[in-house]
Amino acid sequence: MLSKTLLVSAYVLISYCTFGQGLKIGDKAPDFNLKSTEGKQVSLSAIQGNKGAIVVFTCNNCPFSIAYEDRIIALHKKFSSLGYPVIAINPNDAVKVPEESFKHMRKRAKEKSFPFVYLQDESQETAKAYGATRTPHVFIVQKDTDGSYILKYIGAIDNNTDDPDAADKKYVDNAVNELLLGNTVSLTNTKAIGCSIKWKKP
């Protein structure tokens, strides 16, 4: 009985800790069902004909997200036809930051003619499940033979936020190219400064 209780506690503790740290490379990426700025519900499992996706947690208002907007558009234009579309997700609490509301998301998507879907994670559960902490924060997933998605890369887009021309390590570009060639991703985790996700008040 005692050992059973211990086992259960250990399991709960491990699950809690794993959840707390978000996903690790090789984990199954949790599916989501979120509303796009075009008013459609979008989920990973419903995307047809793709090989994976570049999931980017981003937002309207963070200067670092704005600095990367054109690069995110370029990634989608380059890789969506090759099977890796960008899926942009805004996890910020619009109560805390009104500029992050759905209305402002629609406005931003229109202004910048986003070619990718821009989804609102209103409950913030998707951001929590992925372990996203900042914007922008990228998670590259690859579709497995059983239709599930496996996490292949977590981190930054490249190594120079301020100056795209000076970025000499294009992490996401390299990772997707490696996946397209059937190789494993050589650099799976990178870090970058970014805006903290604005979580709802507990």
Partner: peptide, 20 residues
């Protein structure tokens, strides 16, 4: 410093990069 990934872990390995 612009190449964030090269130094964030030197401050703390648990830092994901968000500020403050």
């Amino acid at each position: 410093e612009t190449d964030y990934d090269s130094w964030i872990n030197r401050i703390d390995s648990t830092w994901t990069g968000s500020i403050p």
